[in-house]
Design a binder for these strands. Structure first.
Length: 239
DNA sequence: AACTTTCCCAACCGCACGGCT
DNA sequence: AAGCCGTGCGGTTGGGAAAGT
């Protein structure tokens, strides 16, 4: 009752991430009330699992990943969560979408005509509708369209973060300067760890926040520091 | 430029399952 | 055993973006 639906705003994302970094998710059903979000627990869980988790891998699916998906789908069928478990950093939803929008069509198009020999599915570059071998299946614009929430900058890191807020809250524009502000400050170990790829922190800095620069085992201390800074800048409630 | 169609992805929905009482 | 609750899974869809006319 009175719960919000539809796309998540940057503000909601920050509240959710900050809350989970401070408290863990615990009971998903109770989380939105405790965090002050007008969302159901299910929606919070989905947003976290599919988008906000620090170990989410963003960007192109590699040929290897696509072939793995095709192979596993042959073995397992539509068991997306099992397939996702074999592809670190990829979510079941993402894999399901890639399958339904690209791989299924590709396989369909490459179905051998009657009387022709079968060949191993996914074993040949010629199976790909994208004729450029070793090139990513998705364009950079497609990838950037994935970035509706935190980590919105594309691989070039030059685009301003788009704040979607239907309530028209007075949110600061979250462009590169926002993140550099978040990373600034002597008390932020994240800054040096992040930029220097400090192995102790198990973090490596790539060219933009939200890209695959964060290792799968990116530690929670980094996220804690990062969103503590964000809290200060956005004046979010402290938990 | 304006309009229509197609594509794609984030998010929703309904259901199944396991744990607990 | 039955009922409730929380969680996870897979199918589906709304709507924005891109492409086509």
């Amino acid at each position: 009752m009175g719960l919000k639906k539809g796309p998540w705003t940057a503000e909601e994302d920050l509240i959710l991430i900050t809350y989970i970094n401070h408290n863990g998710h615990g009971n998903w059903r109770a989380l939105p009330k405790r965090a002050g979000l007008l969302r159901c627990g299910k929606s919070c869980r989905l947003r976290w699992m599919n988008y906000l988790r620090p170990d989410i891998k963003r960007g192109n699916f590699t040929m290897e990943e696509e072939e793995t998906i095709i192979k596993l789908h042959q073995e397992l069928g539509n068991r997306w969560s099992v397939i996702a478990a074999r592809l670190p950093g990829r979510t079941d939803n993402e894999i399901k979408n890639v399958w339904n929008t690209h791989l299924k069509k590709r396989l369909h198009n490459s179905q051998p005509k009657p009387g022709t020999h079968l060949h191993a599915i996914g074993s040949s570059e010629s199976d790909h509708t994208n004729s450029e071998s070793n090139s990513p299946l998705y364009s950079s614009s497609e990838i950037s369209s994935l970035s509706g929430g935190v980590g919105g900058a594309d691989a070039g890191g030059s685009e301003a973060y788009m704040v979607m807020d239907p309530l028209d809250h007075d949110l600061p524009e979250m462009d590169e300067s926002f993140w550099s502000e978040v990373f600034s400050g002597d008390d932020s170990s994240a800054t040096s760890d992040f930029s220097a790829g400090n192995s102790d922190s198990q973090l490596q800095f790539s060219d933009s926040f939200g890209s695959s620069g964060l290792s799968a085992e990116g530690d929670m201390e980094f996220w804690y520091n990062l969103f503590s800074r964000a809290e200060d800048l956005l004046e979010l409630p402290q938990f």
